[in-house]
Design a protein around this nucleic acid. Sequence first.
DNA 1: CAGCCGTTGTACATCGATGTAAAAACTCCG
DNA 2: CGGAGTTTTTACATCGATGTACAACGGCTG
Lengths: 345, 345
Amino acid sequence: MARPRIKDVARRAGVSEKTVSNVINDYAHVSERTRTAVREAIDELGYRVNLAGRHLRRGRTGIIALVVPELDIPYFADLAALIITEAERNAMTVLVHQTREDRRRELAALEGFGSDFADGLILSPLTLTGTDLRDRPGAPPTVLLGERVRPGQADHVAIDNERAAREATVHLLELGRRRIRVVGGREGTEPGTAEVRSAGHRAALEAAGLPWDPAVLLRVENFRALDGALAVRRLLEAGEQPDGLLCLNDQLALGAMRELHDRGLRVPEDVAVVGFDDVEGGRFSVPSLTTVAPDKHAVARVALELLMVRIAERDARTAGAPPRERVVAHRLLVRESTAGAGSRA
Amino acid sequence: MARPRIKDVARRAGVSEKTVSNVINDYAHVSERTRTAVREAIDELGYRVNLAGRHLRRGRTGIIALVVPELDIPYFADLAALIITEAERNAMTVLVHQTREDRRRELAALEGFGSDFADGLILSPLTLTGTDLRDRPGAPPTVLLGERVRPGQADHVAIDNERAAREATVHLLELGRRRIRVVGGREGTEPGTAEVRSAGHRAALEAAGLPWDPAVLLRVENFRALDGALAVRRLLEAGEQPDGLLCLNDQLALGAMRELHDRGLRVPEDVAVVGFDDVEGGRFSVPSLTTVAPDKHAVARVALELLMVRIAERDARTAGAPPRERVVAHRLLVRESTAGAGSRA
DNA sequence: CAGCCGTTGTACATCGATGTAAAAACTCCG
DNA sequence: CGGAGTTTTTACATCGATGTACAACGGCTG
């Protein structure tokens, strides 16, 4: 009982294979009679399209590869959820890869995993450099998220990270905080999110006439709660007394808050904490977390939009337009971790 | 400049197409000479396998479809992350779908999305019934996660949910709690996770000679923190005074704890809270969350194991063995939300 | 009713990689 | 050096769906 093929359906309905194909693909000029006859044959046999055959013939897979560092970091999970939903709306299916911070995996992703699996690629890079993005013959259309690798190498969607960090810092400064630390530097990576956000932080300080010291950037191993907690522990054990923390994602912030709690420091009274990403955990934590909320829906929507355009261009063998840069909105959600007792956003 | 094909590589290397194919697939009997010659040609042309062609010929796609309710619920994100990693170890790629609780989507998944995309399917069902799983001619090999739909319809991996709930309840009872509520019932679903866990809860009560009342099961819309908070709010506003909450996942528990906090109730002194899943949020929350921790690595590993066996059977046209049932380990991690001040697990 | 046109339906080649079967090349030994 | 036995390579058919090009059909006009 092998699966039925178009051939079987055709025989059963008494038409040609192409006619069956036409019915399946809603081709206009099929009479109502034959259309129903074919539909019936399909139902009776339980026929389902073989996508391998279709892909081979059409030259498109209908698959988008999404590459994120780790899916179990809530921000990426949120993003993936939205992208999958958005892709579906574009009749695309999403295949997810994790780089687990591995540079080789990111490069492999860029190359299309040594194959041409996907029609397009959405990539949230951590370690890639500008040069990695040049000259990728045969690589699929690509949209980068988040980090501004270097302008002009590929389509890119992100919030204005520098401005966001500046606003967050201004917020802390307005609360009178002067000993602010930034949590989330990475070792040995190219200028990435951390550096851009650091620059925003610095700009805010300098605009306020305050000095800036590169040492305020605390390094972390990863972007999980544990890393935030460890960073704060090291800081406090070194005898420092911060009164504000700008954490480069919410997980770091939540870990930091837990560590502060354990050491008897109150948030926000002793230390005000700001995060990035607006994940669910920060909305229900005690205290709830002030955060820079990117418009994630927009990120997903715009990413798909850019990608679908590129894919269409490629199909049409149109000359590729220059890389497109898209900035999506963000806003600072002020919650208890900086505002004192307040309501949940 | 179209992408090179095997034909082009063959011409360049001065060998047949099949020889190129043999080199690509590490076929044993290729001399070192030709092997290197072919490799060079591949590099020079930048050749990469066209998977559509390969899939068509091989009859396998190398893709596993993972279907979860929502990827932005941390437990499912954790699981997806592990499954993707595990799949990679089996040279498989994972395509993720979300049902968003939609029964039709779950059914579509069962049918292989109207196509035969994936070699196999890993499905975490919410609304499926036993009958849905019968008679799925042509459907791909399937492994179910979590909910015991009804034994004997498909391969299945889960913890012993009833025992887990019993243990968690016993833990609450040992703390002297007597007014325990279970948070996480769903409307109108088949006997699923909630019912199985409820049964465990009931068993623990009855073993202790305590009465059980179906009304202890609080309904929720979804499994997010917000739903836990709302459930607790309704409960308290109805004038009830619970001293223990058994939440059917950590998100519900975290939301519940936040609501308790807002209403001036202390955890664990006034209300002890237990969750399920052991997600990161519960390890760093204040207080940290006691939870039933399933061995998620094992879930992922066993799921892939079962699936790969089924796929191999199918390829070999072996008669399908009867459905396999696999139980993975869990343990109760006691943290501050029930234990009083303690250390973080 | 011939002639034309638009609509339906068909035969066949094709997308790219690989399994099959068999030919070619090479080894080794008497 | 001939021939059996083994290793390496090849030609060709095939996986399933669909685009191309064209044939068949039906209806309408003059």
